[in-house]
Simulated scan of single mutants.
Amino acid sequence: MPKTEGDDSAATAPDPKVLSIDARSLRGLAHPLRLRLLSALREFGPATASGLADRLGESSGATSYHLRQLAAYGFVEDDPERGKGRERWWRSVHAGAAFDPEFLHDPDPEVRGAMGVVLHEVATMHAQELNTWLGTLHEWSREWYASSDLSDFKVRLTPELSKELADKVHDLVNSYRGRVPEGTEGSAVVRTHLHVFPRPTD
């Protein structure tokens, strides 16, 4: 099942703080705008409701309401280092989240539906990130273009081997954490998307 993360600290820290989602928090998270707000806070750092509204093309009233909902479920919190004026600053509590695969088979249809919302929104955000990269290739150096990758593979596996493959890729990505200090010249935060899923054979 998916693990999602977004901010620079998750990209450079050796052991990012990952929240294990329970059924209650899953229902609280399962809204497209809440997922986008949380992703933006993880990727770009603390922000106000109005700042997030500008970034996401939403009204500040909507972002303010959904930030309060995210706070009620423990996903975001006030940022005391910035919230000294009239504006309220928010930050993500966790660097990432992990989901229980049993949510898709939960007897409660609301839980199954919430998991579906999260999965489809994560897939949509992955596609948007990839399309943004492709649309801005000309802004990056030839070295970054040559070091990027857009590949897909087909291999016959059992469910056990498919999980082993995904786990090994997770371990490989995590082995690169902390190797490049923040602010290193020529470095950038690299996004790696992993999609492993079966396909029909007929």
Rank of each mutant, 00 (worst) to 15 (best):
L137C: 00
E160M: 04
A127N: 11
V180S: 04
E129K: 10
H138C: 04
V118G: 06
S151H: 11
H170M: 06
M125P: 03
E121F: 05
M115W: 09
V180E: 09
H138K: 11
G178D: 10
L150T: 03
K163V: 11
E182T: 10
L161Y: 08
S148Q: 01
L119I: 02
G178P: 07
Q128M: 09
G183S: 04
F153P: 00
V118I: 13
L150G: 01
A127Q: 14
M115L: 12
L165Q: 03
Q128Y: 05
L119N: 03
G183T: 04
V155G: 02
W140E: 00
G113R: 06
T136E: 11
P181Y: 02
K163G: 15
S141V: 09
N174H: 11
S141H: 04
A114S: 15
S141C: 08
E129A: 11
L137V: 01
S175Y: 10
E121Q: 13
Y176M: 12
L172W: 13
S148H: 02
D149V: 08
K154P: 01
N131I: 06
A123D: 14
D149H: 04
G135T: 05
S151L: 02
P181S: 10
V169M: 06
V122A: 08
E143H: 13
T124S: 15
M125L: 15
K163F: 09
S148T: 09
Y176F: 15
E121R: 05
W144G: 02
G113Y: 05
A114K: 07
V155P: 00
Y145P: 02
R142Y: 03
A166E: 01
Q128E: 15
K163A: 15
H126L: 03
K168D: 09
V155W: 03
E139V: 10
M125E: 14
K154S: 05
N174L: 14
L130M: 06
A146H: 08
L130Q: 13
E143P: 00
G178V: 12
H170E: 15
H170K: 11
A114L: 14
S148K: 04
S151C: 00
Y145G: 14
D171Q: 13
V173I: 13
Q128A: 13
R179N: 10
P159D: 00
R142G: 01
L157V: 07
L130A: 12
Q128D: 08
E160F: 06
D171S: 02
A127H: 14
G135P: 04
H120S: 15
E143F: 13
F153V: 07
G178A: 07
N174M: 15
R177Y: 05
L172V: 11
K154T: 14
R142C: 00
V122P: 01
V122H: 03
D152G: 08
S162K: 03
P181K: 01
E121H: 12
R179E: 13
S151Q: 12
K163L: 11
T124Q: 10
D152P: 00
D152Q: 09
G116I: 02
G183L: 01
L150D: 00
W140Y: 13
A114F: 06
E164G: 01
D167H: 06
Y145W: 05
T132F: 12
G183N: 07
L165P: 00
R179H: 11
